[in-house]
Design a protein around this nucleic acid. Sequence first.
DNA 1: CACTAAACGAGACGGTACGTCGAGTCTTGGA
DNA 2: TCCAAGACTCGACGTACCGTCTCGTTTAGTG
Lengths: 197, 197, 197, 197
Amino acid sequence: MPQSSKSSRVGRPRSEKSKTAILDAAWKLLKTTTLRDLSVEAIARESGVGKTTIYRWWSSKVAVAMDAFVEKVLVITPFPEDVPAMDAITQQMAALSQAFSGDYGRIVAQIIAEGQAEPEVLANYRSHFLLQRREAAKQIIHKGIESGEFDPSLDPDLAIDLLYGAIYFRLLVGHLPLDQQFIEELSQLASKVLKIT
Amino acid sequence: MPQSSKSSRVGRPRSEKSKTAILDAAWKLLKTTTLRDLSVEAIARESGVGKTTIYRWWSSKVAVAMDAFVEKVLVITPFPEDVPAMDAITQQMAALSQAFSGDYGRIVAQIIAEGQAEPEVLANYRSHFLLQRREAAKQIIHKGIESGEFDPSLDPDLAIDLLYGAIYFRLLVGHLPLDQQFIEELSQLASKVLKIT
Amino acid sequence: MPQSSKSSRVGRPRSEKSKTAILDAAWKLLKTTTLRDLSVEAIARESGVGKTTIYRWWSSKVAVAMDAFVEKVLVITPFPEDVPAMDAITQQMAALSQAFSGDYGRIVAQIIAEGQAEPEVLANYRSHFLLQRREAAKQIIHKGIESGEFDPSLDPDLAIDLLYGAIYFRLLVGHLPLDQQFIEELSQLASKVLKIT
Amino acid sequence: MPQSSKSSRVGRPRSEKSKTAILDAAWKLLKTTTLRDLSVEAIARESGVGKTTIYRWWSSKVAVAMDAFVEKVLVITPFPEDVPAMDAITQQMAALSQAFSGDYGRIVAQIIAEGQAEPEVLANYRSHFLLQRREAAKQIIHKGIESGEFDPSLDPDLAIDLLYGAIYFRLLVGHLPLDQQFIEELSQLASKVLKIT
DNA sequence: CACTAAACGAGACGGTACGTCGAGTCTTGGA
DNA sequence: TCCAAGACTCGACGTACCGTCTCGTTTAGTG
């Protein structure tokens, strides 16, 4: 996207003011309605921007929502460093569960929901958020295996799916809460999954 | 809703023909579009029924879809009986993964997706599908604990969230497929989660 | 249009209230703006009616304007009866000129203008207004010929085009006013055109 | 606008290339669409010119169209000289009718149409085209009166409105064609209007 | 057997949002 | 200072569905 360097340098440049107004408005609206009920029209109204301007830069309301989301919450839930692999995993899972139990989670859930009808949205979610976190998690698992802490026969992808799948499952289906007790028990069970038996 | 017994017995009774026409039409449409793009208007058009009739008996298109879904797929993926607990679990997970990798899965995913904006839909999903299967799974886990096969310190809910969460995670986020390899590895890892170490 | 008698009698009947609200609103707006600047959106807003309702019954804003116009001014400028043919013509021309010098004329001019881009509009104007008046005028000319008052070699169509063409010319091009002097001189010149020389 | 003589001589001079590109593009587009459907945007696109440049020199698309029109067709339908007044009139009317029955007429009609909503356009039409022709016609009528050919009691303006009004009437309302028969009968009737009885 | 009352199909209703187009204005860098 | 390019706000377009509202028409049972 940042075709920075040389590319088209003629014409009026994109207005940063409009861009941030749009993202701010989207974010503000997202906090009070569902992504489902959000509309491009409302974003335009709220941000004082023409609808055309939104459509010029984003393909749909969900794309706007995703960008707004990225801007606001990108830095959340990093993996801790310089701790044993097991601790890094459990601490990050705890942080994610925590984050998912608030606004952050509600919006992630809605993005994944919209993604069921728009594959491109889901693909964006994966490439913008999920994959890099999975990569980080895999690194840690590998480190854990190398240090003899984790079971070398593990498939890291599957292990991640189990541990994080539990979090997403509760987030999306809502049959049980992402509360403190969940976090604690999950950490314990994670040991069983990851460590050598 | 089923004010069965005594209540109002006067007036024209509900038309079974319309009911099935509606559910059939909904199901047919669901196979070619998304639940998102399904509309009450289209169901009415397709089934040759007045919109009013649909709204008289269902609160939304998702409610219709869920009923259509129930009618068609209720009997899928039972837990096998008279086998060791571990086998019962893995066989059922395999069956569910299999089912989720086709139309069944696509529609479940869309129902959960719609549920993000309509809590009542999600509640229906849980009460109509999820909970009874979770109950069955818990029974089996308890049986496994009693027989000394499974770890008695397990929280069955959490164990289920890990194992089935992995399936739902892949179904909803689509980062990896619900294929044969997944099923096999999942079964192996399930042992680690459930059995005594 | 009035498919009165038998035709489709199912479904909710058309709302007379909406119909008149639409025509009233259109007429009101026409008095303060141009037909060009009139919009379906504005009519809907002003009449408190959904846009769909307008589009259900009319093909464009001009069609609405024409109907509004018909409703309001259909009865204007009839040919007087029981007077000599010459007087009938001149009196009606005077009445028309008068009418055309006000709102009535402004709107007729705009309808004809819109008609330049939409042939169907022009066709409607001709069939709803023009032709019946021309027929009436022809009748009178024939009567005048029979009574020996008018020149029997006249082509009534052409004569009408000259006399009324002058009125429309001034209306549409605006180079000279449709004032009292015009009316008087036109009446005199009409004699020359119509009578036996 | 033509601040001709001395005024600001600094800065980049107006590009003749752009000017002709604009007028050519406008004319080309006019031949395939209506003036109504013509847009500044399309002219800019077609001529490879910035919209700003068009707005810098013309007030609207109609102004451009009029200029394009002037450039292309100004020299049409002069009054013949050195013939009897009656012949000069009828020959010119014939030529005008002829011209009006083709592209020329279609565009004139559309200019007058646009003029209903933009008075300035109509004023331009009158000053650029109509008035000079009317002046010429009046000259001829006066000549005819002086030569004893025409009725001295005539109001030339009114006479012109009758004769040319018939042509404009048919052009703009389209109820009858501007064909050969019309031209012939119009010439005959013109005699009756103009000559001494 | 007539009467009542609810369900039915049809389809019109007031709305909201869609995604697009063109209007006229503004803001760059280059000529 | 002009020009092309192109981004800007604005307002209207015509369409699709929403959920509600009449209509006239079944289709039972009840009196």
